[in-house]
Design a protein around this nucleic acid. Structure first.
Length: 412
DNA sequence: CACCGTTCAGTTGAACTAAGCAACGGAATTCGG
DNA sequence: GAATTCCGTTGCTTAGTTCAACTGAACGGTGGA
């Protein structure tokens, strides 16, 4: 029965006209032909980076601006153009892009250098076992083998520095004086301007030889961006009147996040398509908004390590228990429940020290709200609240229970 | 009432440990002659 | 006897633990008005 039903489904799916002409244009990795409202910044980047085409080291650049203000796309756009020219003229320039936020890829000094060496020179470097100096040496020697300029783009550099200190930047900038043939130059991208305040001034001055600010887009600019993307991505006349302004308005409300606006429009398109609607209606935007939020949260929850999930579950439990009474609880409460859950789930409990860190990280992820408060003579702790939209609570809770293979009865 | 020292319950930083891994070098094994 | 494999040692990273110093405001006692 299932088979027959599915066959029908796929056939219909094939026959169905898609609303999209080129969906790629709506994806995050897409780099448009032209970037709206960022001419000034792109020119600046281009001017600073231009010397690479003469194999001279360009200044290091520090770029900051809120999420979705076009930092990454502008840098990628510029660097790709440079690479194109470099290829045509046979100039030995390498530009690599690394996102420091990715766990297990580039969130420590060792892993970052290893990743750079891997990407730039296809060196295989083991995940562990080597001294960091050794990795530097491998990288250094590969780099200095021929005359070239290497530009390393470090996206979300604040995450890296927060976690593993600013030596990395210092070391990388210092390498230059020892290189004979090659040169290396850094582009740091951060969404947190204030992070510059707590890095070593020496590092700051070497990284921030040039600073570029990306202001957030306003609603009109987002509309332009959306229009241009939509022109490529959607077929003609599928977007109803007012759809684009609404997307833009949604996104502008959140500090002008263009990426969000684009996601919103894409998901709205997908939803419309699934509904077999011939056009994208305003209603679809509202649905999309909810779906994006839901998917994002569910994805975060699902991809957390077990310890994080069980911690979160403990918080859920406390929330569940205290529904009508108080809405927030303290680290100690969470740890008690957590310790109780661990044997049931067959997981070795972690110390409270670590749990404290995990709670802080869950807070960073936005799943919970945890702020350090002092209760006077009754000590100091974190005040923890769940910060999920109510309509998702049940769903997330079930996912957690399934993930750590605990029984629903726990909550009854 | 204003001021001030005490106190609590974690927070936070730093040093330390265990688990994995790679490289090295010497011992054991294999192999062809 | 040379080449190869095996194995133990050393030294590394990293996640997590242990230790201990630190924190910040309410409590409650003190003294002054």
């Amino acid at each position: 029965m299932v088979k027959k039903g599915l066959n029908g489904f796929f056939e219909k799916f094939l026959k169905q006209e898609s609303l999209f002409a080129n969906k790629k244009a709506m994806q995050n990795v897409y780099i448009p032909q032209e970037i709206d409202h960022r001419d000034e910044q792109i020119n600046q980047i281009a001017e600073i980076l231009a010397p690479v085409l003469k194999l001279e080291k360009p200044s290091n650049i520090f770029i900051y601006g809120k999420t979705g203000s076009g930092k990454t796309v502008s840098v990628k756009y510029t660097t790709e153009n440079i690479l194109k020219v470099a290829r045509e003229n046979d100039i030995n320039v390498k530009i690599i892009y690394i996102n420091c936020k990715l766990k297990k890829v580039a969130d420590t000094e060792y892993r970052l250098i290893a990743e750079v060496a891997r990407m730039a020179f296809e060196k295989e470097i083991p995940a562990t076992g080597l001294p960091t100096d050794e990795v530097y040496k491998i990288f250094f020697e590969a780099l200095d083998e021929e005359e070239q300029v290497l530009v390393v783009v470090l996206d979300e550099i604040d995450q890296l520095i927060k976690k593993s200190g600013d030596d990395i930047i210092y070391n990388l900038t210092r390498i230059n004086s020892e290189l004979k043939k090659a040169q290396i130059s850094l582009i740091g991208i951060s969404n947190d301007y204030f992070f510059a305040n707590y890095i070593d001034p020496r590092v700051k001055s070497s990284l921030g030889e040039e600073e570029i600010l990306f202001p957030p887009y306003n609603a009109l600019q987002i509309q332009d961006i959306l229009k241009n993307r939509a022109k490529v991505a959607f077929k003609q006349n599928v977007l109803e009147e007012g759809v684009i302004p609404k997307c833009a308005a949604f996104a502008a409300r959140e500090h002008g996040d263009a990426r969000r606006a684009i996601d919103l429009l894409r998901v709205a398109g997908e939803l419309a398509e699934r509904e077999k609607s011939l056009t994208v209606k305003i209603k679809h935007i509202d649905d999309a908004e909810e779906k994006i939020e839901r998917d994002r949260i569910i994805d975060i929850v699902k991809t957390q390590p077990k310890q994080f999930q069980i911690t979160l579950l403990a918080i859920f439990y406390l929330f569940h228990k205290s529904k009508s009474k108080k809405k927030e609880f303290y680290t100690g409460d969470v740890y008690d429940v957590y310790k109780d859950f661990c044997p049931k789930a067959g997981i070795r409990p972690i110390t409270q020290r670590r749990l404290s860190d995990i709670i802080a990280e869950l807070d960073m992820l936005g799943l919970i709200n945890a702020k350090v408060i002092s209760k006077g003579r009754f000590g100091r702790t974190r005040e923890i609240q769940l910060s999920l939209p109510t309509h998702l609570l049940g769903k997330v809770q079930n996912i957690l229970l399934k993930e750590i293979e605990l029984d629903k009865k726990l909550f009854e």
